[in-house]
Amino acid sequence: MTIRPAAPMPVELRHYVRAGQHPARSVPCPHCGAAAHKPCRVQSNGRTLPQPHPRRISDWARDTACCPHCQVEPTTPCHDEGRPRTTVHTRRYQEAEATAA
């Protein structure tokens, strides 16, 4: 019997396999340190969470969508009249969800 190495999964197929996951899992989590495409976890006991941390979702929305509220491009943080925000505007979350759908 010959053992053959596994072929890499095509990108098109990988998208459908991950379709049940939250799209924010495509970026690393700044809260718990989970790598991209890995679930968030509780740092004290290592239990995995069913949904990503809010900061991870915020970073994903910042990286993928323009903000209709403050008119900034992707990867640029939202601001309130020049003061930077730690999270993104609600409308940017909605824009990122629409982009991911």
Score class of each variant (00 low, 15 high):
residue 8 P to Q: 01
residue 11 V to N: 04
residue 11 V to E: 15
residue 11 V to I: 14
residue 12 E to I: 00
residue 13 L to K: 08
residue 14 R to L: 15
residue 16 Y to L: 14
residue 17 V to M: 05
residue 17 V to L: 15
residue 18 R to V: 07
residue 18 R to P: 01
residue 18 R to G: 10
residue 18 R to Y: 12
residue 19 A to V: 04
residue 24 A to K: 02
residue 29 C to K: 09
residue 31 H to L: 11
residue 31 H to R: 12
residue 32 C to V: 03
residue 34 A to I: 05
residue 34 A to P: 03
residue 36 A to S: 14
residue 37 H to G: 03
residue 41 R to H: 13
residue 46 G to I: 03
residue 49 L to C: 02
residue 49 L to E: 02
residue 51 Q to A: 13
residue 54 P to K: 06
residue 54 P to Q: 06
residue 55 R to Q: 13
residue 55 R to N: 07
residue 56 R to M: 07
residue 57 I to Q: 13
residue 59 D to T: 06
residue 61 A to G: 04
residue 61 A to Q: 04
residue 62 R to T: 08
residue 64 T to H: 11
residue 64 T to E: 12
residue 65 A to F: 03
residue 65 A to P: 03
residue 65 A to K: 00
residue 66 C to A: 15
residue 68 P to N: 07
residue 72 V to H: 09
residue 73 E to V: 13
residue 80 D to Q: 13
residue 81 E to C: 08
residue 81 E to G: 13
residue 81 E to L: 10
residue 82 G to P: 08
residue 82 G to A: 06
residue 84 P to C: 03
residue 84 P to H: 07
residue 85 R to L: 15
residue 87 T to G: 09
residue 88 V to C: 10
residue 89 H to V: 05
residue 90 T to W: 10
residue 93 Y to C: 02
residue 93 Y to M: 15
residue 93 Y to Q: 08
residue 96 A to H: 04
residue 100 A to D: 04
residue 101 A to Q: 12
